[in-house]
Structures are given as C-alpha cells and as structure tokens.
C-alpha cells in the first residue's frame, strides 16, 4: 500500500495524517516553520512564496479558529484564499463530496484545506484527485472526524521543541477524551515518531479507544498517578455533548477527577508546560488558575500554529 502523502522522491505532496510520515519530514516541517515565526513581527507581514496560488479552505464542519489560522498562514504567504463553508451550502443541496471537489478543481484550485466530520474524507479527496489526473492539487487535512488533525499535532510538537528542546527524554501526558479526539491521535503519532520515550494517556475507560495499548502508550485512569513527573501535560477539549450521559455522569465529576488544577499540576515536574488545543472549557477540563498561570503555553501554541501551517503550505507548493 503506497503512502498517498509522499511522492516517489519522498517529498510531502499532501498532509493527511502524521501516521506514516518519516521523522525527517516532521523535523523538516518544524525547521521550516522556525523562520516563519518572524514574519509576523515584520511591518509587512507577507512573503511571496505562494503568490498566484489559490488556496481553498473547504470546511464541511464549522470551525472558526482553525479556518482563521489557515487563512492567515496562506495570506502571509501571499496566496489567494477562498473560504467555503460547505456544510451550509452544497452538501445540504445533496451534492456529493467529490462533486464539490470536482467543481472547485475546475476553478483552478492549487490547494485544498479540508475539514470534514467523517474520518478519512481528505484521503478520499486526495485519492480522487490522483485518480483523475489532478495530482498537482495538494490536500491538507484540517481535521477529519476522530481520525487526525495533523497541523495541530505539528504545532504541538513545535511548541514542545521550543520549550523542551529534546524529545527523547520527555514524559508527556495527554489528558481527556482520547476516544473522540483527532488531536490526540495526531499527537500520539507525532510524539512516537519523534522518539518520546513515555507517552501517557489519562482518561476514564469510557473515553479511551479499543486496544489502546497497541498505540504504544501507557494508560492511567488515576490522573494523579499519570501526572507524576510529567514534562508536558496536553489537555484535550471535552465536547459538550459528552459531558452527561452514558460516557460521563456530569461535568462537575469530570472536573473533580480529570480537571487540571494547580494542586494536580504540582505532581508534574516543576518546569512542566501545560498545553491545550482550544477552545477551552474552563472549570471542566482545566482550572482558570492553570490556564492563565505561568506554566500554560496555550497562547504561544496559537502563534506557532500559523508558522507551522505556513511551513506545510510552502513545502507542499514546492514539492
């Protein structure tokens, strides 16, 4: 089975998932992102790498934050950006996903940034483009179902490297709804490829995927044990619809057992950093004292996210 993300020369042609990417490609993305963080500090926040290219933000699922960061990244690279909130238009008129893609391809798209509620949708698009002789159009997965959110995983790695330098001595704890989280899957893939020796998952059994041990992680149901001596604590967002029902009894009990408080954070290493992909539920998964505290690197994550997305887009356009 060929990895649809890489061409014959091993260059990145689509970014669909971190799973299956070589370590060198990951490091190259992080290295490429580093100088882009400075673009934002210039008076003219623009470089011409993607001038004349059309980037279509193809969002089949509502999102403000991710779409905005992709838009900013593309614009800083001088691309033309077209935002399509497809959930509200074509799909509701019965147009199929691939019909939508065909129509937009006919408008000379160079790159699709795709968010979709179904796992694997960006793969389907990439395979369709390749099967119909339009392999020059690049696809970036901006989150598909529960599967992957690779640019989030990459910006998290950028953040960890920024604060911790060396991946190979870290203990990283991921806390929360791992079962439904595309962010968690991309984080685990990236941490594994970059050689993090201890990846921990902290969650109740109802929020863990099947055979989770095969993903190469240690599972903790007791947050206090899981946080002990962690260097990095990555919190996940708990979706509102999961807060009460068969998976969890209440947001209050969740906060008590899995919410990150200053008292629980004290069990981690004194220099541990706290990350969150946003948007946060204060008082559900994270205490405001932690979210606004000195260990939180949540806002730098957002800033780095733009640089990482610029890096991915420029590498794809150059492939």
């Amino acid at each position: 089975m060929l990895n649809p993300q890489l061409n014959r020369n091993g260059e990145l042609v689509h970014l669909l998932s971190i799973d299956g990417l070589p370590r060198e490609v990951l490091l190259k993305i992080l290295d490429t992102a580093a100088p882009f963080t400075e673009v934002a500090e210039r008076e003219v926040k623009k470089i011409p790498l993607l001038r004349g290219k059309s980037v279509f933000n193809l969002f089949f699922e509502p999102s403000t934050r991710t779409r905005t960061t992709f838009e900013i990244a593309a614009k800083r690279l001088s691309a033309d950006v077209i935002n399509l909130n497809v959930g509200a238009s074509s799909q509701s008129k019965g147009e199929t996903l691939l019909d939508t893609v065909d129509n937009l391809s006919a408008m000379q798209a160079d790159m699709f940034v795709v968010r979709h509620a179904s796992s694997g949708a960006p793969y389907l698009i990439a395979q369709h483009l390749s099967a119909t002789g339009r392999a020059h159009i690049h696809v970036i997965n901006a989150g598909d179902g529960r599967h992957a959110h690779p640019t989030q995983g990459l910006l998290d790695m950028y953040t960890i490297r920024h604060y911790k330098r060396d991946f190979t001595r870290l203990t990283v704890a991921i806390v929360g709804d791992i079962l439904h989280s595309r962010v968690a899957r991309s984080q685990i893939d990236a941490l594994t490829i970059l050689g993090v020796p201890e990846i921990r998952m902290i969650a109740p059994p109802t929020l863990l995927p099947a055979e989770v041990g095969k993903l190469g992680v240690r599972v903790f149901h007791d947050m206090r044990l899981g946080l002990r001596d962690a260097d990095v604590v990555m919190m996940l967002r708990l979706q509102n619809e999961r807060m009460q029902g068969a998976l969890l009894p209440s947001p209050q009990e969740y906060f008590k057992t899995y919410g990150l408080t200053p008292e629980k954070l004290a069990l981690a290493r004194p220099d541990a950093i706290v990350m969150h992909p946003g948007p946060m539920n204060r008082g559900v998964e994270i205490d405001s004292a932690v979210a606004d505290g000195p260990r939180a690197v949540i806002l730098p994550q957002v800033t780095f996210g733009i640089a990482v997305r610029m890096a991915v887009m420029s590498m794809l356009a150059g492939a």
Binding site: R182, R185, A210
Partner: peptide
C-alpha cells in the same frame, strides 16, 4: 471492528 485499526483511524467501533 472495535480494534486496533478503528482506534488508529478514528472510526467508530463495533465491538
């Protein structure tokens, strides 16, 4: 199938 592949691909599982 609610197993390793579904967990990796983020597909809802049937146990």
């Amino acid at each position: 199938h609610d197993g390793e592949v579904a967990s990796r691909l983020g597909l809802a599982g049937i146990p």
